[in-house]
Amino acid sequence: MEKQTVIETSHGRVAITDVGGAGTPLLMLHCNSGCKEMFEFQKQALAGTRRLVSVDLPGHGASSDALDPRRTYCFGGYAEAIVEVLAKIGIAKVAILGHSLGGHIALDLVARLNDVAGVMVFGTPPIPPGPEGAQLGFLPNPEMTYTGNPILTDQQVEGVVAMALGPGAERDLFYTSAVRRTDGRSRQYMVDAVLAGTQLDQRDLVQRSTVPLAIVNGADDPVINLDYIDSLNYGQLWTDRPLRLAGAGHGPHWMQHHIFNEMLQSFLGTLH
């Protein structure tokens, strides 16, 4: 049974969808300017297999804007909010699926939570802090230039949806409305925090971590440096190397959702 709930946190009100099920719960974290509904295909595929919790990050979707935007709108701030949410809904052990920004938050949660069963990320380069990380992990693509803008044009709003979900998705008014609803400061302050170097060293984290990690990227992702991701050393990578899913860009969970969901289910099946 699916429940829509709003959780009060020190960062603001956080809207979640909670679908009951047995086994280790799966937490799903969306991309920059996205919303929890962007995991609809994953919810359909995993229904009845385990508890599924999808979250609107502060400043996104049905959640409130952050009470203290500079505190919250960064990888670590979002992760702190999620820690509070999990505690309030009684989840101690959790698996995490993170898309782009959501993947960075998932990696940060590995360092903050005591019992992460496993993490799958996509569209997420594990980067060191500061400008070096941004240069290593992301491509100099025009599509990246406005992702930190507090205000987006109509064309840019459609570009965010198309990048997050795939070509054609920008015609869906729900998802373009979700991007328009996003607190523009969340984009600006998140990029500011990355460049300021105040975030966790995620490159070092994935090298040292013993938490099972799956990395599945779209082979045609236009914004992340796949070769950089492939070049890293990983402490507990699910496969021999990060996977590249053909026929998909930054949103493989949508563009190739049948194959992506098979990979996700296979990974979840290996977790304890």
Rank of each mutant, 00 (worst) to 15 (best):
D108F: 01
T210W: 02
V55L: 10
N141L: 10
Q135V: 11
A169T: 09
R13N: 08
G133W: 11
I82F: 11
G269P: 12
Y175D: 10
R51D: 07
G23T: 13
A219G: 02
R13W: 01
A134E: 04
L232N: 07
H253C: 14
S209F: 02
Q156F: 09
E37H: 11
M1L: 03
M120K: 11
L67H: 03
M120L: 15
L67F: 02
G249S: 13
S266F: 14
G118N: 15
G59Y: 01
N261S: 13
A47C: 13
T5Y: 00
G90A: 03
R241D: 10
K93Y: 02
F138M: 04
L232Y: 12
S177E: 15
P129E: 09
G12T: 02
L205Y: 13
V179D: 06
T145V: 11
M163A: 13
I91M: 06
R187A: 07
G98N: 02
V121M: 14
G137V: 05
A117S: 12
G123R: 09
L213R: 05
L26D: 04
C35S: 06
N149L: 04
T9D: 01
A178Q: 14
R50F: 14
P129R: 05
L237P: 06
H257N: 10
R71D: 10
P128I: 09
I229W: 08
G247C: 06
Q135H: 12
H253L: 08
H11I: 03
L139N: 08
L264C: 01
A164P: 04
T9Y: 02
V116F: 00
I151P: 00
I215V: 14
T147R: 07
L97D: 04
H272T: 08
V119R: 15
G197S: 12
R208T: 09
H250V: 03
Q199N: 07
D154T: 12
R171A: 15
T9E: 00
A47Y: 15
T145E: 15
T153E: 12
R181D: 10
R208G: 02
E143L: 15
V55I: 15
H258M: 14
L245H: 11
E8Q: 09
R185W: 00
Q265W: 13
D68R: 08
D220A: 10
S209R: 01
P129F: 01
S33Q: 12
V194H: 09
G137N: 03
Y228A: 02
G249T: 11
R244M: 13
I224Q: 00
T239P: 12
R71V: 05
S177C: 09
R244Y: 07
H258F: 14
E170G: 12
I82L: 14
I127H: 03
T9F: 05
V6L: 09
N233T: 10
Q207I: 02
D221M: 07
L139G: 02
I89T: 08
L113F: 09
I224W: 07
L67D: 04
G184R: 04
G235V: 07
M120N: 10
D56L: 07
W254F: 15
Y146C: 06
M255P: 06
T17S: 14
L243A: 12
V206D: 02
G103P: 05
A246Q: 11
G59M: 06
V211S: 00
Y234V: 14
L113K: 00
G12I: 00
L52H: 15
H60D: 05
A164Y: 04
V206Q: 02
G197Q: 13
Q236D: 00
G235Q: 08
